[in-house]
Simulated assay, not measured.
Amino acid sequence: MVRISVILPVFNAERYIGKAVQSVLDQTFEDFELIIVNDGSTDSTSDVLNDFSDSRIIVINQSNQGPGASRNRALSIVRGDYVMFLDSDDWYCEDALETAFEGITKYDADLTFFKMINYNEGRVYENDWFNLSQFDESFDNRAFHPSETPGSIFDLSVGVCQKIYRTSFLRSVDAHFPEGIFFEDMPFFYYVYLKSERISIIRKVLYFRRKHDGSITHVVDEKFFDTVAAGQVLMRIFIDNGWYDMYKYDLLAYKINGPRYALRDLPLDCKDEMFMLIKKDYESIKMTPLYHDFLDNLGPVKRKFFEDVIAAGDYEEFVYINSAK
């Protein structure tokens, strides 16, 4: 057994993977294993990984299956008491594992948040999404239950790399990522968060999040089609676990907003396909009892979007209808 298992999926990250791996090997905390899942990389990623020689590194090579499948494969073999995630273009502060371990064990938590900071071409900056500003000082120095969460849980960062998790807890709730889609962090986070009994926070930056032209969330392109599928998974999680009625108002708004913003920001040549994915989703909702929940609980802007998508035959018609007051 080891104390912490770090899971690092990688696909074609030859420029950055060396720094990510080295940031783990340079940790002040040494009782870890680093599980790297090389997800069918076709660049020089494998050569970079082969340059490392450390008994704590486990490399799994597989055909390209996506980040969800890669993380699930690593989760199935972890030996650590706790799990942390690292993305291949990011890196840890040198005391990240030590500080995270101390934080989660001190309060016997199922998961613990810490702060992340953005890095972009030498510029380092915080934002509200990653600096734990959603939690006031009453959440410091203790464990809390998700029912105590201030405001909306949908204001919290869903990034899995911003937390450390108790392995036995993840296994007890059969936590796993949806496979075959991007934005797999989101349904995983809400399932794990709401299953937790004890949560804590560490108000210290432990993780550098690199933003660059190839970042998954930086470039709005076809991968944002998956905001529809991720929202469908999320709805099913809330319904199946009996959380739907409690969170209905914010959940429905959250489900609408992801694809709505994606449709707005996608390049023109992607809008038709994105619109049809959203329309198919909404038409399926119309055939269920949930349809009236959407009509009754959405604010005016989101409700109009919802109804206009259903009414329009294609994206061009939607633009015409939606622009009308």
Rank of each mutant, 00 (worst) to 15 (best):
V2C: 07
V6I: 15
F11N: 06
G18W: 08
V24Y: 01
Q27S: 07
T28P: 02
E30Y: 09
N38G: 05
G40I: 04
S44R: 15
S46R: 12
D47G: 09
R56W: 05
Q62G: 03
G66D: 05
G66E: 04
P67S: 14
S70L: 01
N72G: 01
I77Q: 00
G80P: 08
D81W: 01
Y82C: 06
M84W: 08
F85L: 07
D87C: 00
D95A: 03
E98K: 15
G103F: 07
D108Y: 01
D108G: 05
A109S: 15
F113M: 07
M116G: 14
M116R: 14
Y119M: 13
V124K: 12
E126L: 13
D128V: 12
F130A: 08
F130S: 09
N131R: 03
Q134E: 13
Q134N: 14
E137L: 06
E137T: 15
E137N: 14
F139H: 04
F139T: 06
R142P: 07
R142M: 13
H145K: 11
P146E: 05
I153N: 04
L156Q: 08
V160S: 05
C161G: 13
C161Y: 09
R171N: 02
R171V: 00
A175Y: 01
F177L: 02
F182L: 11
P187G: 11
V192E: 03
Y193M: 03
S200M: 09
I201T: 13
I202V: 00
R210Q: 10
D213R: 12
V220F: 05
D226C: 05
A230F: 02
L234I: 02
N241C: 02
W243E: 02
M246G: 08
K248S: 10
Y249H: 14
L263W: 03
P267Y: 06
L268H: 11
K271P: 08
K271I: 14
M274D: 08
K280P: 07
D281F: 15
Y282L: 05
Y282R: 04
I285W: 02
M287R: 15
T288L: 05
P289W: 13
L290R: 09
H292C: 08
L295N: 00
D296A: 12
G299P: 08
P300L: 09
E307I: 15
G313F: 09
E317W: 10
